[in-house]
Design a protein around this nucleic acid. Sequence first.
DNA 1: TGAAAACTTTACCAAACGGTCAGTTTGAGG
DNA 2: CCTCAAACTGACCGTTTGGTAAAGTTTTCA
Lengths: 205, 205
Amino acid sequence: MTEDSKPPLTRIQQKNRDIILEAALTVFSTRGLRGATIDRIADAAGLSKPNVLYYFGSKDEIYRTLLTALLDTWLAPMLNIDSNGQPMDEVLGYVAAKLQLSRDYPRESRLFAYEVLQGAPHLEGILGGRLRDLVENTVAVLERWMAQGRLKPVEPHHLIFSIWALTQHYADFDVQVRAVLGPGHDPYAEAELYLENLFRQMLEP
Amino acid sequence: MTEDSKPPLTRIQQKNRDIILEAALTVFSTRGLRGATIDRIADAAGLSKPNVLYYFGSKDEIYRTLLTALLDTWLAPMLNIDSNGQPMDEVLGYVAAKLQLSRDYPRESRLFAYEVLQGAPHLEGILGGRLRDLVENTVAVLERWMAQGRLKPVEPHHLIFSIWALTQHYADFDVQVRAVLGPGHDPYAEAELYLENLFRQMLEP
DNA sequence: TGAAAACTTTACCAAACGGTCAGTTTGAGG
DNA sequence: CCTCAAACTGACCGTTTGGTAAAGTTTTCA
């Protein structure tokens, strides 16, 4: 009864599951869940369609696996905010970490964006549960810092939203950013400076 | 030769085209181009599938029609920035106008987000053409104001990006915003205050 | 080495999809 | 009221899609 029904993965399973998830991430993040086809994922993975379905029972299962794995990566920086650190350093560190996530994992950012755009049907209680709790904790820390006069007071929920919006924009709207800037720009490098200044101006007491 | 090949629309044509576009906007903005089906659009419009295709030759044509119409609405506020106005008022006015657009036309915002997420395949030269020119003009105005010391100097392209990111976030990530805030909040009302303060702090000389 | 387990493939569904067509109904103008 | 174009429909078609069945191949390990 208490068996975990988790047969250990063989070497081949491990490798092929990774290959499939890697390929699926690219496909899902450029076409969305409904726009992606198993054929395309199989193609990108260099496997046959039935072989892909040998490792994951359905397209949805691949998607859900990606989304679940993504969440931890995605929320990690917020957990890293140290309530005993210097407020300004902590906030700017969080902004920088989130921006780096957008730079290094743009596919994950876009996958998440697709999901939320749709109304987050696969994130059921998570947004209003785990995510909300995490935000509430951070909000409490921010409010303490503001009450102590170590940050200028602003609405902390919206401060968090603005960090998310500003950093993810560079991944999700990458095409637009690059088209508008034209060649010879490094959006992320410029954004790093811009955003540090922005939050400094807004929050430095 | 110079005939415009534009047969005038009958009353019924006008009405049904509008109904279809209205229904399609809802469907496209919640499922994306590929996730939407003509059947679903027809259903939402209360028309039969062949009848929908009587008014628009294909799904793509409906989509392109929506996207084109959307662009004008979308870019209008930027055209409204008055280079002879008070810099701070103009910038804050633009922010407020964009936020209102997100509040009043969230479906349009999400449709646009889907398109750009995909790499904007239907916006071919527009992002790097018309949009870029428009931004370049605005950037010039902003730079002048900054040079005159009427705004604190920041990188103007990224200032524009940040306005887009912050305002559209409330439409595109609506589900997340509401889930995190919990009930009893008016995200847009709060955002209005928050964003005004943000840009004031960042830009007021 | 040999047999079981793990892996892969070919061939194939049934459903959903974008779109067509032949013909019927509707309604505006004379 | 009649006529005819405009508006509409049901039946259909070829393709794509998610997924399965069954048989073949490779790997593992006793």
